[in-house]
Write a protein that binds this DNA or RNA. Structure first.
Lengths: 164, 164
DNA sequence: GAGGCATGATTGACGCGTCAACAAAAACGA
DNA sequence: TCGTTTTTGTTGACGCGTCAATCATGCCTC
């Protein structure tokens, strides 16, 4: 089982290295830009973006977690921090005593409105602009294929949440 | 400054979504495989891999950090944890009283020898096998271009360590 | 060789994520 | 209806990374 390992050749190692560096550094770079130009971290931005897509800026914690593909506990921890910052507020859910409705506060909306243009520019300037049309499409299909493969191997996050 | 933002169209959003999911999920999937099939986390694997490329399995903490592109404090925290697990050992550096030599222990070598085949298989099966040759090359150049762009924007990790 | 700056490494506080345990409420089934 | 199971959400412990502060040592220059 280990003697027939197909190791990477030099060229494959180069590709792998470039990809690994990107996978490892991209997210933190995005966070850095966000924190520098607004008062929001990447995850906070995600939460507020999801909320602002909802009708009233209100979503049940359950649905928020599902939409983001996160564990409930992760969301819970983050919401606690965001609540103390005044970005979101909790309210009991009238139809289900277990549930909580999460709503964006005015400060939360202000923050994401302020952060959005810079965030989009970051993506545009660093992901789309530097690539050719072919590279964009290849990147797209490659990303989907890799994800599908990992999912098939049962190693993707939240294996249960793969409904389209 | 915000009114001329070039927002993403529907197709671009699809690409961005796929890429973001990959960037967000790949690393944790790799970690999951590693932890499942060995006793090593992803970062521990990186440290041991770097050490095993050195002559005697010994590297100064400074060089280890440089090679991995990490902050010293990050390495320090991790080494403390790895030392308690018996994966590495510290020894004072004879030529520089400030420095420390980090060496792999027998347990450390055993662990990475055990982990390596599964790790390589993960990469091979989920990154290389699912892609066409064209996609591989496009992925390679796209990753490099995106990284270069972020670096130019001054947002890449460790802006100082960009000597190639 | 004494002052001053650079380098190497550690520490502590804090944000963040995972995991396992938990409590309360809902849904289900006989 | 009563008991079991599922769902929802929180909490605490712990691993992990960043940042700022700290400290000792090396280096460099006058």
């Amino acid at each position: 089982m280990s003697s027939d390992t197909r190791w990477l050749d030099a060229h494959e190692q180069e590709i792998w290295r470039a990809l690994r560096e990107l996978l490892w550094g991209f997210e933190s770079a995005m966070d850095r830009q966000l924190i520098r130009d607004s008062e929001l971290s990447g995850v906070e931005y995600s939460v507020l973006a999801a909320l602002s897509e909802a009708d009233d800026g209100i979503l049940r914690a359950r649905d928020l977690a599902r939409q983001l593909g996160w564990e409930r506990s992760r969301l819970s921890h983050l919401l606690k921090r965001m609540e103390t910052k005044g970005l979101v507020a909790r309210a009991e859910c009238p139809t289900d005593l277990r549930g909580f409705n999460i709503m964006m506060t005015t400060a939360g909306r202000d923050a994401i409105v302020k952060a959005a243009p810079g965030h989009v520019s970051f993506v545009r300037e660093n992901v789309f602009d530097p690539l050719t049309e072919e590279e964009r499409e290849a990147l797209h299909s490659a990303a989907m294929k890799i994800q599908a493969s990992i999912r098939e191997a049962g190693l993707w996050v939240n294996p249960g949440v793969q409904k389209g």
